[in-house]
Amino acid sequence: MSALFIKSPNFTQGRKGFKPIAIVIHIMEGTLDGTDSWFGSRSSNVSAHYGIGKNGELHQYVKEEDTAWHAGRVDHPSWKLIKPAEDEAGMYINPNYYTIGIEHEGSEDTDWTEEMYATSSDLIAAIAQRWDITLDRDHVVGHHEIYSLKDCPGTKVDINRLIAQAGGTPPAVPEWVVIKTGFTGKATTKNNVNIRRDPSTRMAPLASVPPGIQLAYDGYTEVGQSIDGNSKWYYTDEGNWFWSGAMK
Results as ranks from 00 to 15, higher is better:
V141R: 03
H144N: 12
T31D: 12
A125Y: 07
V24W: 02
K190L: 07
E175F: 08
G53F: 00
T67E: 07
S121Y: 10
Q60L: 04
L135T: 04
D66Q: 14
Q165G: 01
T201S: 11
A118L: 11
M116S: 06
D228W: 00
R196S: 07
M91L: 15
T99D: 13
I213H: 13
M203C: 08
K190A: 11
Q225F: 00
V140L: 08
R197W: 11
P205E: 05
Y97Q: 10
W241V: 00
E64G: 02
V141E: 05
Y147T: 00
S226K: 09
P84S: 10
T189N: 12
A89D: 11
S121F: 09
H49G: 03
D237T: 05
L4H: 07
L149W: 03
T67I: 03
A166R: 05
H139N: 10
P211E: 12
M28Q: 11
A68S: 13
G239H: 09
A172L: 06
Y117M: 06
I127T: 05
T110W: 04
I93R: 13
S107T: 15
T181L: 10
G245Q: 08
I93C: 06
P77C: 10
L58N: 01
N45I: 01
W112H: 09
H70A: 09
G14W: 02
R15H: 15
G212V: 04
A22V: 13
F5Y: 14
P211A: 12
K54C: 02
A246R: 09
T110M: 07
T67V: 03
N10C: 07
I102D: 07
K7C: 06
N194H: 14
K19A: 13
L58Q: 02
W233H: 07
S107P: 03
S226A: 14
V46Y: 06
